[in-house]
Nucleic acid binder design. Sequence first.
DNA 1: CGACCGGTTGATGACGATCAATCTAAGTGG
DNA 2: CCACTTAGATTGATCGTCATCAACCGGTCG
Lengths: 236, 236
Amino acid sequence: MGELVDLTDGERTALEKLEERQRPLRRGAVLLRENEACNELFVLRKGLMMSYVLLDDGSRQILRFLFPGDMLGVSSAIYREAPETLAALSDCVVSPFDRAALAEIMREHPRLSALVLVYSQIERVALTDRLAALGRTSAKARVAALLLELRNRLRATDRSIANVFALGLTQEEVGDATGLTAVHVNRMLRQLAEDGLITRGSGRVTLEDEHALARAANYVNRYEGLDLGWLPQPRS
Amino acid sequence: MGELVDLTDGERTALEKLEERQRPLRRGAVLLRENEACNELFVLRKGLMMSYVLLDDGSRQILRFLFPGDMLGVSSAIYREAPETLAALSDCVVSPFDRAALAEIMREHPRLSALVLVYSQIERVALTDRLAALGRTSAKARVAALLLELRNRLRATDRSIANVFALGLTQEEVGDATGLTAVHVNRMLRQLAEDGLITRGSGRVTLEDEHALARAANYVNRYEGLDLGWLPQPRS
DNA sequence: CGACCGGTTGATGACGATCAATCTAAGTGG
DNA sequence: CCACTTAGATTGATCGTCATCAACCGGTCG
């Protein structure tokens, strides 16, 4: 959260309290399963995770990829049963904390509650972008948008990442995120390569023409263009 | 918000302050256009609205339908430019209020800020349901899910609504919400009718077999099953 | 009355799913 | 160290869902 505003000491210690405990997760581990009860939330400290739902025909829709610094399970916390599954895509570290700790922050730190709302809204807008992508854009555009989104989110925690990055996903996972089959994802990646927009090799992707890619994908980086000057003042 | 918790007098008056002003909107009117700046938020008092985005090929994706009691423009408030357009589907009344008024509430009423977050998360989960629908379900299921969602949200403000209700949308609008063409929406409605799941007539739809419809649509009512016992206590 | 909007129906075609086979690289056990 | 297994990537052939194009109908409004 320190990236959006300058935190006070009081706010910083309140947030650090959420990260007191740590729990490691193996690649593939499920942190929380759809329809299970859960009184905890989490902060992702390291690694890449995803949230998804399974439909009753067995197909999977990946809803979101989760990166270090993201708060996990907010939506599960307000329901008796979790609406989505949280699973690790790589070895991860998470910090669990109680719902009461979030309540405490909302009581004592108005600006932090505002920031929780802000992140929730950023996520909401990113979801609507993907909704529009699934509803109204071609398979190629959806894959291109996913590549751009992944690269930008990875770069947020690792500034050394430029145009080359490790995908960290199987083509089946890309398909489950974009509403396509693994076979068609493969063809789309190949087409993007043939168009000169990307190059691929040994699990790595290079964005060769980021601008053209963003145009083809209708992509907007939703972590930019914020206006937070109006947030409530910190109490301490 | 009073439907989720018992509000204190202090909370109630704080919320009433948001509804001091009123602005009527004609059917078709645009309250806020994508990429425009906006320092205001709104509460929808009466009528049906929608939010949508236009893609550069001219196609439209409807992101969400808005019902009385909904807070509008939260996502626009945190960006310099609105990420989506807000438009009236029927004659409406909205109450505009300043971003500062929201900040004030977050400073003085921790439980109300928690409830704003809760509504934001309910909306988020509803969006992920639609994301999964667009990514992984058939045209028929998507239309069925939209019918159920509309009926349930309409009933929340008008308890007299049972299984018959006025759609209030053109088939083109249904298509823009479900990622289909108007022509195909028409065929899906006809198929649902042939299957005995609905009947139609003069702008009205009757859900003949709500249970089978919900099963065909993978539908979950996200305004139920909440667990809010852990929210912060009201300060006044 | 004519124009227009929205709904309805038919004919055709494209995009992406499905099924199937092959290939490669990374393990794993003997 | 090598045979064997396995997960994932790749490619081809075929099929189905939904888009597109086009025509027509009915109601409403200027």
